[in-house]
Nucleic acid binder design. Structure first.
Lengths: 172, 172
DNA sequence: AACCGATAGTTGAGACTTCAATCAAGCCCG
DNA sequence: CGGGCTTGATTGAAGTCTCAACTATCGGTT
């Protein structure tokens, strides 16, 4: 077992010795990498085949469907999805060409742009939601006992919040 | 709360009524989506800045570093990463241009191609591993109590294995 | 030996994302 | 009012991934 160890540099200066992952942590981490890859793949494939949209486009439709007037500003859309502004711009442009969303100028802020879901977008969401939910169940929720799924949600919530940024961080 | 519900079609035919996610499941699922997006983003950024490679390239280097003769066949590489063959072909081509890996024809199978890590690839892995591990800790492992991280690993292992495919599945 | 379906890998086009540069509008301060 | 900084959004180029089509080899069959 010693020879093929993944740790490139076993002996490092004691001062800044990196804290390698333990064997158990390695296993968990690789499971995460494989599981998340597999899950993303499955969900994207299902949506693409059944509705002709990607998971990010679906997520945009969901956010819009929940918003008052089915309208959200571009930057809020980006923030709520943890996507870059540029990414949302491109994605919304493509969706707009397909008639799923529209752009409106933002009245109270000349810089802002509102993204509005069209009726066609709504219809597409209605049609694709059941299949998507089924895929989420088959590939995630129903694979785990309820408690374990809830725990996973908790954990990933902490990950989404990210490392606590205290004042000593060099943020600027 | 009723009006902005994300469920497009509340009333569906009772026969094939979709099993929507419960409110709790919704929260957990969205935490997953946000957390995984944030984590992938953080790890990719760190590797790109500090080592000039992406997470998938890093993973390829790790797999190679663990293999006998630091050599793996393309298709095994693809399988072990849950990536498509095509994706691995493209990625390896780029890495080869940068001198991180090399291709060798496979002696025992004329169709096969072996991917070999070069010394430069090994050196790059050695240099970048500490920073990457630190990022994994900061953005995932150290955010969770040890037991919770282990549980997450368990859960994602089940996800990686995927839905049990019994004989009644139409797989062919 | 010639065939045929399955497997390994590549290729190129199109779709998607990232990054840096740009533009426009808001905000603050003297 | 008139800078100058910050924020919101877009653009285009470069990089990456997916998908379908293609080539080549292997294995089993006759």
């Amino acid at each position: 077992m010693a020879e093929t160890t993944p740790r490139p540099a076993q002996a490092v200066g004691p001062a800044d010795e990196p804290r390698w992952l333990t064997a158990d942590e390695q296993v968990a981490w690789r499971s995460y990498l494989l599981g998340s890859a597999r899950l993303a793949e499955a969900l994207n494939r299902q949506l693409e085949e059944d509705a002709g949209i990607s998971l990010s486009e679906y997520e945009i439709l969901v956010r819009l469907s929940e918003a008052p007037l089915r309208t959200i500003r571009m930057s809020e859309l980006a923030a709520s999805l943890m996507h870059s502004r540029s990414r949302v711009t491109h994605t919304v442009t493509r969706m707009q060409k397909r008639g799923l969303v529209d752009r409106r100028t933002c009245l109270d802020d000349g810089r802002g742009v509102n993204c509005v879901m069209t009726e066609a977008g709504w219809q597409l969401l209605v049609r694709s939601a059941p299949g998507h939910v089924r895929a989420v169940r088959e590939n995630l929720v129903d694979l785990l006992p309820a408690g374990q799924f809830a725990a996973l949600g908790e954990a990933m919530g902490a990950v989404a919040r990210g490392p606590a940024r205290d004042a000593s961080d060099v943020t600027g």
